[in-house]
C-alpha cells in the first residue's frame, strides 16, 4: 500500500472515529501538509491535522519541536516575524486563510489566542481589558455589561472580580490574569481558541479552573491547546497530536488520534516513551 493510500485510509479511519464521538462533527479548521520556515531554517514539515468543530485538540511534544510556531500559523501571527515563510495550506471552514483576498485581521478575530504568559493590558481596568478586543477591532456589540459578565463567568472569574471591575488589571494574581485574558479573547466571539501552554505559569488550583473553563467552552467552540502536562491533555482533550523534532531536523507530527488511544495504546514507540515521561 502506498503512503498516499495509507494516509487516506488512516484519515478515513480517524474521521469514522470522530464520527462516532459526535455524529455531525464537521471540520472547523485543518492544516494540510504545512511546512514552516524561519528564514532558511525549516522548523516544521508536513503537518496535517484536522480540528473538528467543538472539540478540544491537545498538541504535545518536547520544547522546541514547533508547537507554538504551528498554532501561530493558524491565526496568521507567524507572518509578523521577519523572514517567516510557509508552504501547504491552512483551512478555516474549508477556505484557505492565506488566500490573498483574506484580511488577516478578520482571521484573528475568528481565531482567538491565549498566550503562555498572562498578558492583560496593565493600563486598563478589568472591565476595560474584557472589552478591549471590541475597541481594538472596532467590533460593535451591544450591552457591554452583559458581555463582561458572560465572558468573565465563562472564564470562571466572575465571582472573584465582580465587585472590582473598575480596578486595575495589574492587581490580579497570575491565575486570575490568565482567566481574564481568556475572557478578553471570548468577548470578540471567536469560533476557535488557540491556547499556547495557558497553564504553565499557573498554580494547580488555577490550572483546574482554567481546565473547567476549557471544558465548558468546548461545548460551543473549537479549542486547540498546547500543553506540557500529560494529565492535562488527558483531562481536557478529545484528540491529541504528538509533535517531535529530531536534532537539527524540522518538527513533524509523529502520531495523532483520539486522546485515549494516544495515551493508552500509542502506535509509535516514541509516543509511548513521551507520554510516559521517558523523555522531553
Amino acid at each position: 500500500m502506498s503512503t498516499a493510500e495509507f494516509e487516506e485510509t488512516a484519515t478515513a479511519t480517524l474521521d469514522a472515529e470522530l464520527g462516532q464521538r459526535s455524529p455531525d462533527a464537521k471540520i472547523e479548521m485543518e492544516s494540510r501538509e504545512l511546512s514552516v520556515w524561519f528564514g532558511s531554517r525549516k522548523v516544521l514539515e508536513g503537518v496535517s491535522i484536522k480540528f473538528p468543530s467543538n472539540s478540544v485538540t491537545a498538541l504535545i511534544g518536547p520544547s522546541g519541536c514547533g508547537k507554538s510556531t504551528y498554532i501561530r500559523t493558524l491565526n496568521r501571527l507567524h507572518e509578523l516575524i521577519p523572514g517567516a515563510a510557509l508552504a501547504g495550506e491552512v483551512l478555516y471552514e474549508g477556505e484557505d486563510i492565506y488566500a490573498p483576498e483574506i484580511d488577516p485581521v478578520s482571521i484573528r478575530l475568528k481565531i482567538g489566542m491565549v498566550f503562555q504568559k498572562p498578558n492583560p493590558f496593565p493600563s486598563m481596568t478589568i472591565r476595560g481589558n474584557v472589552l478591549s478586543g471590541l475597541k481594538l477591532s472596532g467590533m460593535k456589540r451591544p450591552n457591554h455589561d452583559d458581555i463582561v459578565e458572560e465572558t468573565l463567568t465563562a472564564a470562571g472569574l466572575w465571582k472573584e472580580v465582580k465587585d472590582r471591575l473598575d480596578h486595575a488589571a495589574g492587581e490580579l494574581s497570575g491565575g486570575q490574569a490568565q482567566r481574564l485574558v481568556i475572557a478578553r479573547a471570548l468577548a470578540v466571539q471567536p469560533r476557535v481558541l488557540l491556547m499556547d501552554e495557558p497553564c504553565s505559569a499557573l498554580d494547580p488550583a488555577s490550572t483546574l479552573k482554567v481546565e473547567d473553563t476549557i471544558a465548558e467552552l468546548s461545548k460551543s467552540m473549537t479549542i486547540i491547546i498546547v500543553t506540557h502536562n500529560m494529565q492535562q491533555a488527558v483531562r481536557v482533550s478529545d484528540t491529541t497530536a504528538f509533535f517531535l523534532a529530531a536534532e537539527n531536523e524540522p518538527g513533524h507530527v509523529v502520531e495523532q488520534g483520539p486522546t485515549t488511544e494516544i495515551f493508552s495504546n500509542p502506535q509509535d514507540e516514541r509516543t509511548l516513551d513521551y507520554v510516559n515521561g521517558r523523555f522531553g
Binding site: T3, S35, K42, G46, A85, V253, G257
Partner: peptide, 25 residues
C-alpha cells in the same frame, strides 16, 4: 495498523512531495 490513531512515518511518496515544498510568503 491501528483502528484509531494515525502514525505518520516520514517516508514514502508523500514525504518526497513534502520535502520538495518551497517556502512561500
Amino acid at each position: 495498523m491501528s483502528q484509531h490513531t494515525i502514525t505518520y512515518e516520514h517516508s514514502g511518496v508523500r514525504l518526497e512531495e513534502i520535502k520538495k515544498q518551497s517556502p512561500l510568503r
